[in-house]
Structure formats: C-alpha cells, structure tokens
Design a protein around this nucleic acid. Sequence first.
DNA 1: CTTTGTGCAAACGATTTGCAGGATG
DNA 2: CATCCTGCAAATCGTTTGCACAAAG
Lengths: 148, 148
Amino acid sequence: MANVHTSDSVVEALRTNGLRVTPQRVAVYNNLLKRSDHPTVDQIMVDLNQGLPISSKATVYSTLSSLREAGLVREILLEEGVTRYDSNVAPHHHFRCSSCGCIIDIPWNALNVNLAASLPGGHAVSSHEVTVYGVCNDCKSSGDERSN
Amino acid sequence: MANVHTSDSVVEALRTNGLRVTPQRVAVYNNLLKRSDHPTVDQIMVDLNQGLPISSKATVYSTLSSLREAGLVREILLEEGVTRYDSNVAPHHHFRCSSCGCIIDIPWNALNVNLAASLPGGHAVSSHEVTVYGVCNDCKSSGDERSN
DNA sequence: CTTTGTGCAAACGATTTGCAGGATG
DNA sequence: CATCCTGCAAATCGTTTGCACAAAG
C-alpha cells in the first residue's frame, strides 16, 4: 500500500479522481510520488524538464492545484514565500531542519499528542499536526551549513 | 508579566534590544501587543493609519523585520501567500478555524506532546509546536461562513 | 465533436530594494 | 553630526489569468 507506484497506478489514481490523464499530470504526480523531499514548483520543474521539456510552469501550477483538489497531494507551508508539495496525504507530522531547511516526514504514531478533552474556548477540533524543529541527522554529523 | 504594556515598556523593550526608538516602531509593536488576532501587514497598516497616516507600508515591513530579529515578534505561516505576526513569542500552539480562517493561541500546557525519546532518523530536536484545525466557537454557534 | 488541458505572455499581489531626505542617539 | 530610519517608487518573485491551439474522452 505504499512506495510502489507503477505508471498504471498513477493513471488509475488520476482517473478515479475524475482527472483527465495527460502526460504532464502523470509526470508531475509520478515525480512527487517518487521523491520525499517536499519539493517546490521550481524543483519539480527542474526534475521534469531535465531531458526534453515536458511541461511549462503554468501547467505544473495548474496540475498541482488539480491534484490537491482531488486529494492526491497536499501543500506544506513552513517557509515564507514558498509552497511545497507532498504526495503523502495520510496524516503525519513534520520535522524541519534549521540548518539545511529540509523537511522530513514523521510517522503519525511516532508522536503522541494528548489533545485535552476541551480546548480553551470550546472549539470543535477536527485534526492536528505537530511540527518539530531541530537539526537533522545529516547536518548534525557533517557540521556544515548548506542553504538547501 | 503579561497584558500590561505601557508606552514606556514598549520603548524600553525596543531600547533593550538595540533598536532605535521611532514613532513608527512604537506604533507597530504597540499595535501587535494590544491585539491577539495575528494580523497581516495590511491589517496592521489599516489599524495604524486610521486617523492620520503614521507609517508607510515599507516601514511596517522593515519594522516587523527588525522586531523579529530582536526576538520581540514572530511570524506565523498557516495560509498561502500571507505572513501573519504575533507578539507572543513564548512557546504556544495554534488553532486554525477552517470556517473563518482565524488563528487562536493555545496555551503551551493545554496540550501535551509525547516526543518519543528518539525520533526516526535520530535528528536533534530543539522545539515543537502543534497546529490544531477545526471550527472555532464563534463559527460553530453562528453557523455562518465569513471569509475573515 | 465537446470539453478540458497546455503553453506563453501579461497581470497580480506580497515583499524587497534603492535612494534622497529626515530623525535618532 | 554620524548613523540609522522613513517614505516613495521601482524592482522582484511566486503564483494566477487570458487566450489560442492541442489533446482527451
């Protein structure tokens, strides 16, 4: 149920969600499925058009927007001015490295949040998410300070 | 230790943090201290210049940037394309209403996160923060759907 | 054949930057 | 009076939009 994404399963996912199947959509979704670094639109563009140009930037935007509406993809807002995308739509938490800026998924059950029975104010809670800040393992050991 | 902010204490806070005291800085910081709605730059502008113009937008940006560097203010990134500001720099969590879009502070000890001793990957954790999503009390009772 | 997607360029909106004059310490 | 701030306008940069052509169902 995870990590295996044939071109077929991508096509099927698009179809199942009422999206027309185009080479650009398959490429974008496929790219997002095969990487775990929560890329920005630009990073996706670079990856997609390394060989011959497959898609324009406007199309990547529009595709990501469609994928998001279809629930196949989600946005991640942890930095100013940049929207990142994640094909992992199952609930999970995030770790943000203050050194290299990378974002790493934390499995849902690696953390346990004790949502007090009643939040101050009595708001209706539907979901929650934890963001953990710190220095990732790579930066810790290499001691460098790349700017991602 | 909270909620009382005389003009004097604002001036002192600026000075203590090595910032020159200007009417604009006092006004911006003061405004942020007296509201709890995590305003955007535009909202601050409106509030500030209701009577006679006190500050230009560029100055509000620069002021907020200085205040942030000084640690008097923090940014909140929960929506696409807008940066909100918060004068509450003590650790706390946030509640985001999916109906009106408002952001409400949750006191640090209203939630309890059980940070597993070792996060997968062995990253060095320095802090964490929970974002809770749902419908705020106001929206719940009035059943409306203002767009904030 | 009808509908929806793509590409390109122009339009946008939030934020930044350059620079001249003004205020602060 | 040297330094730092403010205001204004122009410049950036991510993202959106309008439109003509092409592809999908």
